[in-house]
Simulated assay, not measured.
Amino acid sequence: MRRLAVYCGSATPADPRFIECAQATGRTLAERGITVVYGGGRLGLMGALADAALAAGGEVIGVIPAALVGMEVAHRGLSALQVVGTMHQRKQAFTDLSDGFVTLPGGTGTMDELWEALSWAQLGYHAKPVGLLNVAGFFDGLLQFAATMAEVGFLRPQHRGLLIASDGMDDLLAKMAAFEPATAIIQMQAADL
């Protein structure tokens, strides 16, 4: 993996563990020579991630919609900043530029990015690993929800391994490196669905 899209929040929560996680993620990826592709913001976890990666000598590519640049939340010190027209174009750029996806804590936008990456993997629009760093148990409920989707039958057995979760970055990256794509829905017969 040479480039990873990192999804995370633009907020700064009161609990310092979340900012520390973003900083550690940025440093770890830079130290491993992995380019960070992220939402291009300078605030919250996004800014902490980018600043830490840059400080560690890493390459950071931001992808941000023009409307957010106008709000002056764009990070101007990145290796590259791509300005796009829409959120859809932003997510397509994340997929095009990256070899996989890592999700850190965040809000609605972060969840949107995660679910789209998973949905596209399930459908077969990409065959890249989708990782989830479960900092301080932040994603425990989401992981339980994914298990419930599988138990009820809304998540096919062959797609249960698409979400790769860990509470440690080194372990998460190792699991992502070992990822084997599942049979995509577009490769299945109607009787298998």
Rank of each mutant, 00 (worst) to 15 (best):
D167V: 02
A174G: 11
G26D: 05
D170F: 09
R27L: 04
P129S: 10
G106E: 00
Q158A: 10
G100R: 01
V63C: 06
T183I: 08
A14Q: 15
L49R: 04
A93I: 06
H126C: 12
L132E: 04
C21G: 13
K175P: 02
F179R: 02
G161W: 07
V135Y: 06
R2G: 15
A22Q: 04
L173T: 07
E20M: 07
Q187I: 00
A50Q: 09
G26C: 11
P129V: 09
L118V: 08
G100K: 08
R160N: 00
G57W: 04
P129L: 02
M1E: 06
P105C: 05
I34L: 09
S79A: 12
A177N: 11
L163C: 11
G62E: 00
P129T: 07
D96W: 10
A80L: 14
A136C: 05
I64W: 08
A184C: 05
G141A: 15
F101Q: 00
I185H: 11
E116V: 12
M87A: 08
A177S: 10
K175G: 07
E151G: 09
H126I: 03
A191H: 15
T35K: 05
V73G: 07
V83Y: 04
E72W: 02
G44W: 01
I61Q: 02
F139A: 10
L114D: 10
G70N: 13
A191F: 13
G77R: 15
G33E: 09
A55Y: 00
V63D: 12
Y125R: 08
L104H: 11
G141L: 13
H75K: 11
N134R: 06
G109A: 09
A24M: 09
T86W: 12
L155K: 01
P16T: 02
L78D: 02
A136H: 14
G107F: 03
A80Y: 08
A48V: 07
G57E: 03
W120L: 15
C8G: 05
A147S: 15
R156I: 01
M46T: 04
T108V: 14
G33D: 04
K91I: 03
F154C: 01
I64A: 05
G137C: 08
G106T: 00
M188N: 04
D99M: 02
T108N: 10
